[in-house]
Amino acid sequence: MNLMRYEPFNLLNQLQREVNRLIDTSRFGDEEAGHMLVDWAPAVDIKEEPNQFIIHADLPGVEIKDIEITLENGVLTLKGQRAAEQKEETEQYRRIERVRGAFLRRFSLPDAVDAEKVSAKCRDGVLEVFVPKREGAQPRKIAIEG
């Protein structure tokens, strides 16, 4: 006889997550009038330094060829897809939590960025996007007369 832990709200919590996932409007983009359904959104950190912004996006298991970065009208878009694993018919999964499919994240950038010098690199499943600020956009200190 196997002992199983009884968790009465586990099924209800799972149902609530699924309903929230279906209703969540942030999963829809308006990809040029056609609505693009996305399956997940990568976790992102945005860091501001004196001369640039750095965006770190967690994309484990996503190949570089499957990532597209665009910058248009002050909006930086990260778009791509995590491919599904090839499964053998003999495998029996008990739990699947890693999301597969399309992702999309958009960020409005301030006017102070230099769009021509944006660069990116990906290493160990972390995408880094470097968004430099324009030279004249640096804040200056103003002296106070007394």
Rank of each mutant, 00 (worst) to 15 (best):
N2W: 06
N2V: 08
L3T: 12
R5L: 14
Y6A: 07
Y6L: 15
F9Y: 13
F9K: 15
F9L: 14
L11V: 15
L12C: 02
L12A: 11
N13Y: 04
N13F: 00
N13S: 10
Q14R: 15
Q16F: 10
Q16Y: 04
Q16R: 14
Q16C: 03
R17T: 06
E18W: 09
N20R: 11
N20L: 01
L22W: 08
I23W: 05
D24G: 03
D24F: 06
F28S: 04
G29P: 00
D30T: 03
D30N: 10
A33W: 03
M36E: 04
L37H: 02
W40S: 04
W40C: 00
W40R: 02
A41F: 05
V44T: 14
D45P: 02
E48Q: 13
E49N: 09
P50Y: 03
N51A: 15
Q52G: 02
Q52A: 13
F53E: 06
I54S: 06
H56W: 08
A57G: 03
P60G: 03
P60L: 10
V62H: 05
V62E: 01
V62M: 01
E63R: 06
E63P: 00
K65E: 11
K65R: 11
D66W: 07
I67E: 06
E68I: 05
I69H: 00
I69D: 01
T70R: 08
V75P: 02
K79R: 15
K79E: 12
K79T: 06
K79G: 04
G80E: 01
R82E: 08
R82G: 10
R82M: 06
A83T: 09
A84S: 09
A84H: 03
E85K: 13
E88N: 10
E88D: 08
E89Q: 13
E91C: 00
Q92Y: 15
Y93G: 14
R94D: 12
R94V: 09
R95I: 12
E97H: 12
G101T: 01
A102P: 03
F103V: 00
F103W: 02
F103I: 00
L104M: 13
R105W: 09
R105K: 14
R105D: 10
R106N: 11
S108D: 15
P110R: 08
P110T: 07
K117I: 01
V118L: 11
A120T: 13
K121G: 07
C122S: 13
D124E: 15
L127S: 07
L127W: 14
V131G: 02
K133T: 01
E135S: 10
G136W: 09
Q138L: 12
Q138Y: 00
P139K: 05
P139E: 10
K141N: 05
K141W: 06
K141A: 04
A143P: 02
I144H: 05
